[in-house]
Amino acid sequence: MIEVEKVRYIYPNGVEALRGVSLDIREGELIAIMGENGSGKTTLIKHLNGLLKPVEGRVLIDGVDTRKSSVAELSKKVGIVFQSPDSMFFSESVWDEVYFSLKILGYQSGEAESKVEWALKYMDLWKYRDRSPFTLSGGEKKRLSIAIVLAWQPKYIVIDEPTVGQDAPNRKRLELLINKLRKDGVTVILSSHDVEFIVDLRPRVILLSRGQIIADGPAESILTDEDKLEKSSLLLPQIPLLMKRLAGIGVNPGCLTVDEAIREISSKFKSQKIW
């Protein structure tokens, strides 16, 4: 379990990015931390493996206070995938890139090699193992950056803005991947303002605004709440928006996905013979 307790964080330039944030993340959860740019999403994420330490309050990773442990130690449990993959690559091959991070974390050669193979196959990158990371497409780079972290099998995996700059085929792949990780029992924490992507994953949603949590609950209740989303500069996803506009004629406004909306609309209107 990750316990974030009344965390305040102030950057050296005086900006107070987190203003008393409390949050428990239990094993096996899928969590989406959502909010406008500058709401504190990335600052909060950086507290989860000790890259940043709270000015006040504390963060416990499976009971260990992040201030009493090193980033290297904490990273074994909490792997973070940052937004711009390019800025983290430097090796000559995809294989080396993943291998390097395992060596840094102290894995011995034999074990590291088998983990590289497993992670690259998991992310469908094994065929590119000899390529230079810089020759990969945007979507492949994103997958490699996830493979690097996945390789040491952290219990918690954090992905910062997974869909920024990703096209339709890659978005679909990311959705499948996140569902697969979840099925495999990995705790997945996403930071995102992409409501249309997040809504299909049905995670627990944490809304941040100006360094504070303004809502925390299941997707069904948060991603259908126009006022709360508005406070975080987010918009209602299209399907909840439509269902809300149709609520006046008796459809259930709680639908999140296209399939649910079809079922709801067709049952409602077939029975009333409106069309």
Partner: peptide
């Protein structure tokens, strides 16, 4: 066709 993300509303209209 996954070459573009088809908006959810459009998917709904097409299926209905």
């Amino acid at each position: 066709d996954t070459i573009i993300p088809i908006p959810k509303l459009i998917q709904l209209v097409r299926l209905l």
